[in-house]
Design a protein around this nucleic acid. Structure first.
Length: 112
DNA sequence: CCTGTGACATAAG
DNA sequence: CCTTATGCCACAG
């Protein structure tokens, strides 16, 4: 029972973890994938984000690749929207790359 | 079942 | 860090 069918569990997990990302912190697709038990499916994490269109609660802008580069900024509405959101949280972003990454990097498994 | 896809990760040059 | 290539895996059709 349930008013609506449960969507792809994998996607839901990705959204769930993304929501756990604290303010002013970022994580990588691989970290999320690994937390889900599918470290080799990091691409799916990004793809799940692509499907997060109606997921306003999913701070996709806090999810970057391993280099801390805003690889997915092109998927946001604005050309610099993703960077603006990060800077709005006190994160330094230069040339589409997050600065002080080691200082603001948030690992889901480290917090859990 | 097969094919295409994709916002990654890793290796090699 | 760059490009190129390969792997990898969940999902849509």
């Amino acid at each position: 029972m349930g008013v609506k069918k449960e969507e792809a569990n994998f996607f839901e997990k990705v959204y769930n973890v993304a929501r756990l990302i604290p303010f002013g912190r970022v994580t990588s697709y691989g970290a999320i994938a690994k937390y889900l038990g599918a470290a080799r499916s990091a691409r799916m994490v990004g793809w799940a984000m692509n499907a997060c269109g109606g997921r306003e609660d999913v701070p996709a802008h806090r999810v970057v690749n391993r280099k801390g580069i805003l690889t997915g900024k092109h998927h946001f509405q604005g050309t610099n929207l993703m960077q603006q959101l990060l800077e709005s949280e006190g994160i330094e972003v230069v040339d589409n790359q997050i600065q002080n990454l080691d200082d603001i990097f948030w690992d889901p498994m480290k917090e859990c």
